[in-house]
């Protein structure tokens, strides 16, 4: 796996712009939590996951579970940017008519491995995948991307000892640590810190990265995939909710909102990445 950082930056920039355009069109979206995971999805779908146009619906490849299903728009935008999701279908997001492209991803769309949206379901599904690969001795990896607010759900904590018991080193849990959930800051709502220590206490390995630094995300996820230590791994990706649109960054309202045309145009017409990465 080669990290072509320049390509990844261009890709991430296009995904962000797609999210902005789709939000404009739909009027509203879960834009904050979609923008916070753009770099993570960019890395996953550009070489980390063994996914290509030929094996989109296959179960015999690496699997990805977007447990924070409300960020489905980010996944759709990534799939569309890869050419895996048709342009016409992508623009159905937010349609008044019936569409398979709802806010939360459903099965049946090529490239979507798990239907998610009800928080706290994704990790158990991912463990099911990982156990299946382990029993079948298949060399595939499972990535589960979860929101930090989603860690409120008790099912996640049920899952942690299970992954340890079965020594699932073919499973990586990525936590989108943007510090916000629907109604407020995670630490005010339902404190998670010290998060790293919690995972260590559950006998998981933990790695912390800047979730918007493509090189760091790439290195962490590519190493996660090839490990063979019989210990499940959590990658805590420190991110910013609404990343890339200053006006909504780190704001509670960014969870589900629209963006004014003028603000959207400002970002759609700009280069979102500079030499040093994502512009602040």
């Amino acid at each position: 796996m080669i990290c072509d950082e320049k390509y990844l930056m261009e890709f991430a920039s296009l995904v962000r712009k797609r999210i902005i355009k789709a939000t404009l069109r739909a009027g509203v979206s879960h834009i904050g939590g979609s923008l916070s995971i753009v770099e993570i999805l960019t890395c996953l779908f550009n070489g980390i996951l063994g996914i290509d146009g030929e094996n989109l619906s296959s179960r015999t490849r690496d699997q990805f579970v977007l447990s924070k299903g409300h960020a489905g728009l980010a996944l759709y935008a990534t799939l569309a940017e890869k050419g895996y999701l048709g342009e016409e279908l992508f623009w159905e997001y937010g349609w008044e008519k019936e569409t398979p492209l709802g806010i939360h991803p459903e099965l049946g769309i090529p490239g979507i491995d798990a239907a998610t949206g009800s928080l706290g379901h994704g990790l158990a599904l991912g463990i099911g995948f990982a156990l299946a690969f382990s029993m079948q001795k298949k060399p595939f990896h499972v990535f589960v991307l979860i929101g930090d607010g989603e860690l409120n759900e008790g099912t996640n904590w049920e899952c942690l000892p299970l992954a340890v018991r079965y020594k699932l080193d073919n499973l990586t849990l990525i936590i989108d640590r943007n510090g916000l959930q629907l109604s407020g800051y995670t630490e005010d709502m339902h404190p998670l810190d010290p998060l790293q220590e919690k995972f260590i206490a559950f006998r998981w390995n933990v790695q912390e990265v800047n979730g918007h630094n493509l090189r760091m995300v790439w290195d962490a996820l590519s190493q996660a995939k090839i490990r063979n230590d019989r210990i499940p791994l959590a990658v805590i990706a420190h991110t910013v909710k609404g990343k890339g649109i200053e006006e909504i960054e780190n704001k509670v309202e960014s969870h589900y909102c629209g963006i004014p045309q003028k603000i959207a145009e400002k970002y759609l017409g700009a280069a979102l990445y500079g030499e040093a990465g994502l512009r602040q």
Partner: peptide, 23 residues
């Protein structure tokens, strides 16, 4: 036999994952 502990919701979710993989 997979042991999920006293975790019915997790057991059900794991079952769904296993079924999606053909079990």
């Amino acid at each position: 036999v997979i042991e999920c502990g006293i975790c019915e919701q997790t057991g059900m979710g794991v079952s769904a994952g296993l079924a999606l993989q053909g079990f």
